[in-house]
């Protein structure tokens, strides 16, 4: 005698709840990222590029084909230097 179906019903609910939760999370993450899937395993270079995109287009996921930087771009680019104590 195997495991009856009624013992497997809770597993169905577990699968359902995780699927609904995961799908909801997927939808929220996508909506929060301007309709694109979030980047993952970002390193320093990726973060730097996203910051650059933010300064050029106004959003972290924005892309621009304009070969000229927007006005003010060069001014909003202060060198990140450590603060001197003295």
């Amino acid at each position: 005698m195997g495991v009856p179906f009624e013992a497997l019903l809770p597993f169905g609910i577990i699968i359902g709840s995780f699927t609904v939760g995961g799908a909801g999370l997927w939808a929220v993450r996508k909506w929060d990222n301007e309709g694109k899937m979030p980047r993952w395993n970002k390193d320093k270079w990726d973060r730097q590029m996203m910051e650059r995109d933010l300064r050029i287009t106004g959003t972290k996921r924005g892309q621009s084909s304009n070969h000229e930087a927007p006005k003010g771009f060069e001014l909003s680019n202060p060198w990140k230097i450590e603060k001197r104590i003295f």
Binding site: V3, E6, A7, L8, L9, P10, F11, I13, I14, S17, F18, V20, G21, G22, G24, L25, V28
Partner: peptide, 21 residues
């Protein structure tokens, strides 16, 4: 909430599945 609520629902039903299985 989308992560914690399904996790807690699953906890409840894992106890039931354990008892039933």
């Amino acid at each position: 909430l989308l992560v914690i609520v399904p996790a807690l629902i699953s906890v409840a039903f894992v106890t039931i599945s354990e008892r039933k299985v």
